[in-house]
Amino acid sequence: MSLDWTGRTLELTVGAVAHGGHCVARVDGRVVFVRHALPGERVLAEVTEDTGKSFCRADAVRVLTPSPDRVEPPCPVAGPGLCGGCDWQHATGRAQRELKARVVEEQLSRLAGLDLPVTVEELPGGLLRWRTRVRFVADAEGRAGLRAHRSHRVVPLADCPITVRGAVDAVLPERWPAGDEIEATEDADGEVHVRRLPGRGKRPERRRGGVAVQRAAGRDWRLAAHGFWQVHPEAADTFARVVGEWAQASPGARAWDLYAGVGLFAAVLAEQVGPSGRVLAVESGRRAVSDGKANLADLRQVSWRCGQVEHVLRDRRDSPEVVVLDPPRKGAGRQVVERIAAAGPERVVYVACDPAALARDVATFAGRGYRLARLRAFDAFPMTHHVECVALLERVGTGD
C-alpha cells in the first residue's frame, strides 16, 4: 500500500541543498524535499505533495533552529504556500551563491563524474530589481500576479521586488482578463514593452512598445521586445566577454554559433575570425533570425540558418575551429553533442542555464574525446535557484 503524507507536519533536520530550490531531509527511510529551509536547520515542515513513492515534498512552516545564513525575505509573499517565483529570499546573498555552487558541483559529480570546486560569481546590481523580463498572469478577479510553486493558483502581487520598477508599474496596477498572461520587458533605454497573451489560439496583443534596444559586446541591438535576451541587465555583456576569451577563434577560421538567438555570440566570433573567416549562426526562431540578420548586416562573414540545430547539423560537412552553443534549459542532448564532436572543433564554449543538463552534455562530450577545461558560474538569477554556467571543452590533445 502506497504512503501519502500530504498535510502531515514533520519535525526534521534539514540536510544538503538539492537541485531545484530545496534541501534534502530524511524521515523514516523516505526523502523529503524541503523548501523555505536552509542546510542544518531544525524545522517543522508540512508535506505539500506526496505521490506515494520514495520521496515527498514539504514546506518549512516554522523554523526551530535557524541557520546563521537566514534573513527575513524582502517580499511578503516569498513564503510557504505563496509565490513560487523565488526560492532563496530567506538566505543571504553569499549563502545563495554557495548553495548554487554546491548544486553545480553535485550535478557535475553525479552526472559527469567530475569533482571540481565551483564558485558562483556575483553580477553587479545586487539581489533586487534585476529582473528586466517577466511574465505575470491574471487571477479570477483580474489581478496580476505569479503562480504558486508547482501550482496553477495565482498569487496576486502588489510588487515584485526582484523585477525592475518599470515592468512592475506597467502591469500590476491594472486589471486584466482572468487567465491572461502579461509579458513586460524593460530594455537598455529604460523603455517598457508590454503585451497581453489572451490564451491558446488567440493572437498576442501589443500594449506598449514592441522593439527593444539592448547593448552588449560593444554593439547596440534592436530586437523583438519579448524574444530571447538575457534577463539580468549585466548578463549578456558578461557572457559575451567570457565566450570571447575562451573561443579564441583564429583570423580566417570557421566557427559555429548554435541556438544563436539574435547573434550575440556570433558577433563575438565574427570579430575574431575577421572578414576572411566564416561564422554559421543557427537559430530556430524566425523573428530572431530576422533580427539577427538586421543587427549583424555589417558582418558579412556571418551566415544564418533558420531551423532546429539537430537538423541543420545533419547536413553540415565543414569543420569549425570553435563551436559556441547556448541551448534551452533541457540542454543540447546527445544527438547535437555527437554531431558537434564529429565536426572536430578544437574548442567548444557551452553556455548553460541548467547545471544538470550541462553535466549530462559534458559527460557525452567526454565520451567523444573532449575534456572540461574551465568552468565559470554566475548568479544571473538572484533569489532563485537558477544559475548560469559557461564551460570550455577542449578536444583531448589540443588544449594546454
Rank of each mutant, 00 (worst) to 15 (best):
Q214S: 13
G79I: 06
R287W: 03
P74D: 07
L127R: 13
L372Y: 00
A167E: 08
P66I: 07
L197P: 07
R196I: 10
G190Y: 11
R206W: 15
D318I: 02
R196A: 15
A391P: 02
D187R: 06
K53E: 13
L393T: 01
L157F: 08
L299V: 00
V262N: 05
L372S: 01
V103Y: 00
V362W: 00
S303F: 03
Q89N: 02
W5Y: 14
A357K: 01
W176Q: 07
V362D: 00
R207Y: 07
T51S: 12
D180Y: 05
R278T: 00
V302C: 04
L3R: 15
R153Q: 14
E122K: 12
D4N: 14
L82G: 00
A25E: 09
V192P: 02
C306V: 08
Q308Y: 10
G40L: 09
A288W: 01
D28K: 07
V63Y: 14
S54P: 00
R8W: 09
V164T: 14
A297S: 15
W221A: 11
A225S: 13
S151L: 10
G244K: 09
H152E: 15
T398W: 09
G201A: 12
P161T: 11
G333L: 06
C160R: 07
A225Y: 12
P345E: 09
T132A: 14
A297G: 06
V324D: 14
A148I: 06
P117R: 12
C86N: 04
A266F: 03
A359M: 00
P117Q: 11
A170V: 03
V312F: 08
V17L: 01
P355T: 06
E122P: 15
G307L: 05
L123C: 03
R129S: 04
Q89F: 02
G252W: 13
L116S: 01
L10A: 09
R203Q: 15
H152C: 02
R195T: 05
W246E: 12
